[in-house]
Design a protein around this nucleic acid. Structure first.
Lengths: 137, 137
DNA sequence: TAAACATATGAGCACTTGTTCATATATATA
DNA sequence: TATATATATGAACAAGTGCTCATATGTTTA
């Protein structure tokens, strides 16, 4: 296996820009072939950022509960608050986050605001998450 | 549609324990049928917690990069650090997190430690994440 | 119009997270 | 054995997060 000093490895693929901006890795020897190959297969940086953003939305218990609830039924804020047993304010704040992530949409009706999913992938993500959990323990 | 004061709604299903411990929701009126139905379909709380934990692992850029890299190839810490352009220490800390989440396993070989995926679902989660990202923009 | 209500939002705060830096541990090599 | 190397880890700290509380906005109803 070929090894080489890190300074000799050129940036490339998805991490090219990152690689240019600073030398936070002081590694001395790496498997160049491996790094080069994997780097080439990396999704572009904006795609990775968007994915991290997506999964971050699922990475909080309250939001996860809300998202699951909305896979089942369109609900108003008050319903959601009652369901997940949190204050309406807390729920509203989280719904704002989910709106920002374009995962939910809303519809005003009188004094109430009804939220529903705005993304087809949410259910699939839940399916895999559940499969993972059941498989793990 | 039936509406009712929140005090009259009994806890049940996944959120039963939560519902019992305190009344952080001061909602006055909810759609009881909806809440009851959705509550009944909620995954159990430990399952939700485990899912949140799982997705939290994917919700950070560095860890996401590391996880993707490992879907492609078994790699040592130094390789990973070079690839994601972070210090070996930072990578090591994140690998510790991923080990804790049982997403990666490792194998010592001389001075190096080789990491690889320890979970079949990681690749699928990436597939959906990528599909989502491409679909969204 | 006034009061009640549903939701949204800003400020503040405790808690968490991700990094760096210093250092420890373990292995290989001179 | 001494030195270099690869990785791990604890402490410290800045930044981010998620909640509460107070308050604002907009809608309905008396």
């Amino acid at each position: 296996m070929t090894t080489l000093k890190i300074e000799e490895i050129e940036g490339g693929g998805a991490l090219a820009e990152q690689g240019a901006e600073g030398d936070s890795c002081e590694c001395r020897v790496v498997h160049v072939d491996t790094v080069r190959k994997v780097r080439a297969s990396m999704p572009a940086e904006p795609a990775m950022d968007a994915m991290a953003e997506l999964f971050k939305s699922f990475g909080d218990g309250t939001r996860l509960n809300i998202l699951f609830a909305l896979t089942q039924e369109r609900m108003c804020v008050c319903d959601i608050a009652a369901l997940v047993n949190m204050s309406r304010s807390a729920v509203s704040h989280q719904l704002r986050v989910l709106r920002g992530a374009r995962l939910v949409k809303y519809e005003k009706k009188g004094k109430s605001v009804y939220y529903s999913l705005d993304d087809d992938h949410v259910k699939k993500i839940f399916e895999i998450g559940l499969a993972h959990v059941k498989h793990t323990r």
